[in-house]
Design a protein around this nucleic acid. Structure first.
Length: 649
RNA sequence: GCCGAAGUAGCUCAGCUGGUAGAGCAGCUGAUUUGUAAUCAGCUGGUCGGGGGUUCGAGUCCCUUCUUCGGCUCCA
């Protein structure tokens, strides 16, 4: 007998050789039907594999990330089986699960597949799924595996086999399809109940553009038809929230072919929104010991030679700006850090002065690949809410805590409730590729982890994801419809202080090298505004909305009163416009609702006589009549409850 | 940068197999003076992304270029 420990800590005894499915059945039939794979001693395996020694077991279902991945990976095999029946002679690359679904890369030998073929493929997949074919795992020798794919004529699988060790090779077979695969897979194809192929795209074999281009077919599957419906609904919702669409509709920003790709033009309303974000962060930073600096948009080549960026990015960047001076070259600044290093260097520092926190809303230019540009999330000119903190090694933790507080304050003000901190550390197997002493790295890594713990962050630690110059913490937020975005970042840098020979004088009267911390709570204003638009679907928090209220006179007889109301509100720092058009109230309300103005103030004869406004809230409707002062108080208290910088002190 | 698709009025889109452009909204003008999601009428507006070609004739076919979209690769 063996002991199986379940996630709740309970221990059950089973015969050796029991499978996860057997165990699930012993708990309930329903659970057994839902099991997709199993995590045994931390490793995800087929739910149908035997367990022969004491183990901890977690049964994975659709509700587990890994369960979904298993399902989608198996779905890729199912699609491959369908494709092989429909397109005999087709060759297969790789077919993994991805964040939302799966894909398979195929070589059609000159043929083609388009989205018009999807219904046929989907129908075939459904037919095959219903056969309830089991996914059967077999261990094969490398020689046998090579023989199998040589006979089949699948050069891609043979290419993959080259890099595999004999003795670790497994095949999975379901129905008539056999694939080289590590697994794991779901018990049988019948668990796949809903299938949707999403799109086709070209993709190079092994991601290398020198290799042949394969056809990549994306799909997604579900354990219930309703889950597919929900997913399609979510996609539609995402489309409605697309910041590129809303940015145009709400007149926030545009792009112009003449100005250039990836160079956004901020319209008055977008600028108002952005400036408000900037003011907010500036006030918060002023309260937490930052000083603002301003540096030019271009810099001499030498700056980037010193920083090392010239060697690394020179040829792939905007090319140098020349001057009448022979051989002189300037570059558009791609980051603010080297400039800030020069500011730090401008005078000697004592250990007592540290940390020095230099902040700048610095606009930078990077020549991103044309195919990579996307709305405001990936542009060629953008403004970072950048700051560099120069501190002693023993201050790293405290500085991290402070930056975390700043980021959390912003998340609160913008209603991001769901976030995790991703901590990127060194690859412990390969410490040599990182710059800086082992001791400092250890300290810094520990400081970051402790800072995150102290603030109760949910963290995910990624080994080997650190930059060569230091470990970092990135905030991953989930938006209102569950999509993940990377926003704020905090990074330790041991490289630039070295290259710029930054120093401070310690208590021992000797020179020491400060630690540099890069941080950007928003990341960039462009990207942040894009995420914000998609998060709130264009319905901005009241403190940010370009217009907080619009006053709607019933007829032009009341335009004067409307203007008076607008002026009174302006005195209370409320942004309110008047809709003076000769339209009916219904039309004005409709337009105001569509442009997502938070409050509409309808004014007519009654209001003019009583000195009041009839308040209507966006998306909610009529709130009744109140005095102008009451309304102003209501707005201001609502705003204050959202942004409260004093919390930081 | 690579592969695939698309580009028609300010916006959203229609325009079959080639026969010199349409709608709705927006805008303008006039009428209406209006009470919680679209008042009515009239009008303006396009070298059909740019360039080249085929043709008697090109929004429509071909080449080229730019931009956008979906992916790949990339992101200091």
């Amino acid at each position: 007998m063996i002991n199986i420990t379940l996630p709740d800590g309970s221990v059950r005894q089973y015969e050796s050789g029991v499978t996860a499915i057997d165990i699930a059945k012993s708990i309930s039939e329903g659970l057994a039907r839902n099991v997709l794979s199993a995590e045994v001693n931390g490793e995800v395996i087929d739910a149908t594999r035997s367990i022969t020694s004491d183990a901890t077991l977690k049964l994975l279902t659709w509700n587990d990330e890994q369960g979904k991945k298993t399902m989608w990976h198996s779905s890729a095999h199912l699609m491959a089986e369908a494709l092989e029946e429909l397109y005999p002679g087709i060759k297969f690359g790789i077919g993994p699960a991805i964040e939302n679904g799966f894909y398979y890369d195929v070589d059609l030998n000159g043929g083609s597949i388009s989205s018009e073929d999807f219904p046929t493929i989907e129908a075939k997949m459904k037919e095959l799924a219903k056969r309830k074919s089991a996914f059967v795992r077999t261990e094969v020798s490398k020689a046998d595996a090579i023989a199998y794919f040589t006979e089949k004529g699948d050069e891609y699988k043979l290419d993959l086999l080259k890099d595999l060790q004999d003795g670790t090779i497994t095949f999975y077979q379901q129905g008539n399809f056999t694939d080289l695969c590590r697994g794991p897979h779901i018990p049988d194809t019948e668990r796949i109940k809903a299938i949707k192929l999403m799109n086709v795209a070209g993709a190079y074999w092994k991601g290398d553009e020198k290799n042949k281009q394969l056809t990549r077919i994306y799909g997604i599957t579900f354990t219930k038809p309703t889950e597919l419906d929900e997913y399609l609904h979510l996609l539609e919702e995402a489309k409605k929230r697309d910041h590129r669409k809303l940015g145009k509709e709400l007149e926030l920003f545009i792009f112009s072919e003449k100005v250039g790709q990836g160079l956004p033009l901020w319209l008055p309303k977008g600028t108002a929104l952005r400036e408000r974000l900037v003011d907010y962060l500036k006030r918060a930073q002023a309260a937490t010991g930052y000083v603002q600096v301003i540096t030019p948009h271009i810099a001499h080549k030498d700056l980037y030679v010193t920083s090392g960026h010239y060697d690394k990015y020179g040829a792939d960047s905007f090319q140098p700006i020349r001057t009448p001076q022979e051989g002189e070259e300037f570059f558009l600044k791609p980051m603010n850090c080297p400039h800030h290093c020069e500011i730090y260097k401008a005078k000697p520092h004592s250990y007592k002065d540290l940390p020095v926190r230099l902040a700048e809303f610095g606009t930078v230019y990077r020549y991103e690949q044309s195919g990579e540009l996307h709305g405001l999330t990936r542009v060629r000119g953008f403004t970072q809410d950048d700051a560099h903190i120069f501190c002693r090694q023993d201050q790293v933790k405290e500085e991290f805590v402070k930056v975390i507080d700043l980021v959390l304050m912003i998340f609160k003000a913008l209603d991001f409730k769901d976030y995790t901190a991703q901590i990127s550390l060194r690859d412990p197997e390969n410490k040599a590729k990182y710059i800086g002493s082992d001791e400092n790295w250890d300290k810094a890594e520990r400081s970051i982890i402790e800072a995150a713990e102290e603030r109760g962050l949910n963290t995910v630690v990624e080994l080997g994801e650190a930059a060569f110059y230091g470990p970092k913490l990135d905030f991953m937020v989930k938006d209102a419809i569950g999509r993940k975005w990377q926003l704020g970042t905090i990074q330790v840098d041991y490289n630039l202080p070295e290259r710029f020979e930054l120093e401070y004088t310690g208590a021992d009267n000797a020179k020491h090298r400060p630690v540099m911390i890069h941080r950007a709570p928003f990341g960039s204003l462009e990207r942040f505004v894009a995420v914000l638009i998609e998060h709130c679907a264009g319905i901005f928090p009241l403190w940010l909305a370009p217009e907080q209220a619009v006053i709607l006179p019933i007829s032009d007889k009341f335009n004067d009163y409307a203007k008076k109301v607008s002026n009174l509100l302006k005195n209370s720092d409320i942004r309110a416009a008047v809709d003076e058009r000769a339209e009916r109230a219904g039309k004005k309300i409709r337009d105001a609702e569509l442009s997502r103005v938070p409050y509409m103030l309808v004014v007519g004869e009654k209001e003019e006589q009583a000195g009041t406004v009839a308040v209507r809230k966006h998306g909610e409707g009529d709130l009744g009549t109140m005095s102008i002062e009451e309304f102003a108080d209501k707005i201001n208290s609502e705003v204050n409850s959202l942004i409260n910088i004093s919390e930081l002190n």
